[in-house]
């Protein structure tokens, strides 16, 4: 059998299929103090967890957009080993509509980059987190996310933080999944869930339905 063996040089490599994930995070002034500290810890742990997983680290591509005062591109899409964990600070009001529009534009551009490089990709994910109500017009952004979701081109996870989070607004972005309120400041539990979900997604093959992981570690499920 010794002459019937294939070697590495006989084979080719393809880049891993990518899972683009955009975090759209509220950093308005009301997030000051413990909420922003916990959010920073959660984001750091999230990026470390993704990096630690063999498959997820090759597949996940993370971008972070914040809305507080203005809208900032905190982290651009790239492979995770090239990224640094941002330190988020709070400021001003809540331009959520502008932030979601920017995130959608970034996801679209990233998909075009994948296509031009012959890289396969999974349906993009967006996480939208807020502790209040928007201070700008969200109608165009909400229509865009709803159209994409209804056409199976986006999955959105709308998360409310604290009692003042305007869940009805979050619902407008998400025609399928209802918004969920975070249990206390359980950002770490949420981001752990998100990294595990990305790992499962990055291993999925055609025809495989990914069963959603239980959300009770981080979701306030009380009525």
């Amino acid at each position: 059998m010794s002459n019937l063996e294939l070697f590495d040089e006989d084979l080719l490599d393809n880049p891993s299929a990518r899972v683009p994930v955009c975090l759209v995070l509220d950093t308005s002034y009301s997030m000051s103090g413990k909420p922003i500290d916990e959010l920073n810890r959660g984001v750091k742990m999230f990026m470390e967890e993704v990096l630690a997983d063999e498959m997820a680290s090759l597949s996940a591509e993370i971008a972070i957009v914040t809305f507080g005062g203005g809208v900032q591109k905190e982290v651009e899409f790239a492979s995770i080993e090239k990224q640094t964990v941002p330190y988020l600070t709070t400021s001003g009001n809540t331009p959520m509509g502008e932030a979601v529009n920017l995130a959608l534009d970034m996801l679209e551009a990233r998909k075009k980059t994948y296509a031009s490089l012959g890289i396969s990709y999974y349906q993009p994910w967006m996480v939208l987190m807020t502790d209040g109500a928007p201070t700008d017009d969200i109608s165009i952004a909400a229509r865009r996310t709803s159209d994409l979701i209804n056409n199976k081109k986006l999955t959105i996870f709308p998360i409310g933080i604290g009692d003042k989070a305007h869940m009805e607004t979050l619902q407008q972005f998400s025609p399928k999944l209802p918004p969920v309120r975070l249990k206390g400041l359980h950002f770490k539990e949420f981001f752990m869930w998100l990294s595990q979900s990305i790992t499962m997604k990055s291993r999925s093959t055609p025809g495989e339905d990914i069963k959603a992981l239980p959300i009770n570690p981080w979701a306030d499920l009380s009525l």
């Binding site: 084979l11 080719l12 490599d13 393809n14 012959g118 890289i119 396969s120």
Partner: peptide, 8 residues
Amino acid sequence: ETMHRKQD
């Protein structure tokens, strides 16, 4: 995955 390179 190892027999065909999509890029080229």
